[in-house]
Design a protein around this nucleic acid. Structure first.
Length: 422
RNA sequence: GGUGAGGUGGAUGAGUGGCUGAAAUCAGCAGUUUGCUAAACUGCCGUACGGGUUAAACUGUACCGAGGGUUCGAAUCCCUCCCUCACCGCCA
């Protein structure tokens, strides 16, 4: 959520930034400022009236002590009149605030100056690419066939147990998954990230805090009996650790990593790209998150991008890094780099990570602030990224490392997997 | 799930209707003293939204788990909900 003050200070600049996203409803900016003006006026009025009530009440207390009954009765009537006024004002204020909030929440984050123009994924800019060229053997298979061939994941039984998109990992498939998770976490903690295993369900307040609610309601699984949501990413519970907190400047930067299963309903995505591990309802992911001082967030962003890049490199996968254009960026992000690995067997790029700087957008909603050295309270900047999403990484490893005799395991994973090949 | 006890500022903890935005202690910050450390002493030390100011000072309002209610006046009384702790039941 953007801060109203930012809109007030520079509405034209805000609109320019929104245009980079091709955000249509720029009129919201003025509407919000107008509502905020109303809010201020109402509050001033309310405060005045309430102040009268408060002083009258104190006076009444004193008069009561002196036993001056008649005067007290007179004052009570005055207070009653004022009170009727505050009740009316409160109602107006609540309505105004609600309208303000509703509009404010519709504004996406402002793209940073680094964001390239453009509307669709085709307009994303390749920052760099790397990794080994892959030479696949004759008759190379896509991962869904390899999975069958080596009996690594049983999609059919997963569908029987739960439904389609709930893979059942099995034998070496399960072990490879575990090896990857372990490797990723070790890699992250070695870089100074504190490891967490968060709750996998969150309450409404948390889902709201990271922006899943109110608008992405349909994308989460919802346990209605208890009003909990299954997390779509570890970002939700981990970021909410710092909901409603005021940190010390010396606490920053905070670096966290967490493994978790991720549950996504993926309502509305049919047909294309859903084969095998390309798109599932339950998958696992290791996430990295940072909360930093505003002036260092782009430094932290670079750091995170390099961190993820080295991780992808270590697996020997061909990859590219995309700088998302204004039109393709997520609602809450100010700058996003996507990581894609190349699946030679599918002849397709698969997204395996997305690193974003939210600047203060998420922190504002979350109310995560810190006290700077001059004693002023300000919002932190938050960032996150995957390191990495498991299914597509596994798909990539299986496809790109297949040989006539089996699948070779990347060197860095061998000590976790316990073998050099499948 | 049952029963009981609780939820107050960074922490401990007082406060059962007006003098309490909140005692006291600890931690923290600034300073004085001291050869250093330590100790002692003095001051400061919640958040949000307004007004005010170059910035402060100053000032209004709200907030004592959340939401309602009673009252001229609520941290304090009443109702609902949430959470924590203890014991019992069930259970990985």
């Amino acid at each position: 959520m953007l801060q109203v003050n930012v809109l007030r200070q520079n509405p034209e600049w805000v609109k320019e930034r929104l245009a980079v996203r091709h955000f249509k409803n720029a009129g919201l900016v003025e509407e919000i400022i107008a509502l905020d003006d109303d809010r201020k006026k109402l509050q001033a009025e309310f405060d005045n009236t309430q102040s009268k009530i408060n002083s009258a009440s104190k006076e009444i207390g004193k008069l009561m002590a002196q036993g001056k009954k008649e005067e007290v009765e007179q004052m009570k009537q005055d207070v009653a009149a004022n009170k009727a006024q505050t009740t009316a004002l409160t109602e107006k204020m609540n309505a105004t605030e609600k309208a303000l909030q509703e509009k404010l929440i519709q504004l996406p984050n402002l793209p940073s100056a680094l964001v390239p123009p453009g509307k669709t994924p085709e307009d994303n800019v390749v920052v760099r690419s790397g990794g080994d060229d892959v030479k696949l053997p004759e008759g190379a298979l896509p991962h869904w066939d390899l999975i069958k061939k080596y009996d690594l994941i049983d999609f059919e039984t997963g569908a029987k147990i739960t439904g389609s998109g709930f893979p059942l990992f099995k034998g070496k498939g399960a072990k490879l998954q575990r090896a990857l998770i372990q490797y990723f976490l070790d890699y992250n903690t070695a870089a100074g990230y504190t490891e967490y295993i968060p709750p996998f369900m969150v309450n409404e307040a948390s889902a709201y805090g990271t922006g899943q609610l109110p608008d992405k309601e349909g994308q989460m699984y919802h346990a209605t009996e208890d009003n909990f949501y299954l997390i779509p990413t570890a970002e939700v519970p981990v970021t909410n650790i710092y909901r409603d907190t005021i940190l010390k400047e010396s606490d920053l930067p905070l670096k966290m990593t967490a493994w978790s299963p991720c549950f996504r309903r993926e309502a509305g995505s049919f047909g294309k790209d859903v084969r095998g591990l390309n798109r599932v309802h339950q998958f696992e992911k290791v996430e990295i998150i940072q909360m930093v001082k505003p002036e260092t967030s782009y430094e932290a962003f670079e750091q995170m991008v390099h961190h993820v890049e080295r991780l992808v490199q270590s697996l020997g996968l061909p990859y590219r890094i995309l700088k998302l254009c204004g039109g393709d960026m997520g609602f809450t992000s100010a700058l996003t780099f996507d990581f894609e690995i190349y699946s030679a067997a599918q002849e397709k790029w698969l997204e395996v990570s997305s690193v974003s700087n939210f600047e203060s957008f998420q922190a504002n909603r979350l109310k995560c602030r810190f006290k700077d050295t001059s004693g002023k309270t300000q919002l932190v900047h938050s960032l996150n990224g995957s390191s990495l999403a498991l299914p597509r990484i596994m798909a990539g490893i299986l496809e790109n490392n297949q040989t006539e005799t089996g699948i070779s395991i990347p060197l860095v994973l061998q000590k976790y997997f316990g073998a050099a090949s499948i």
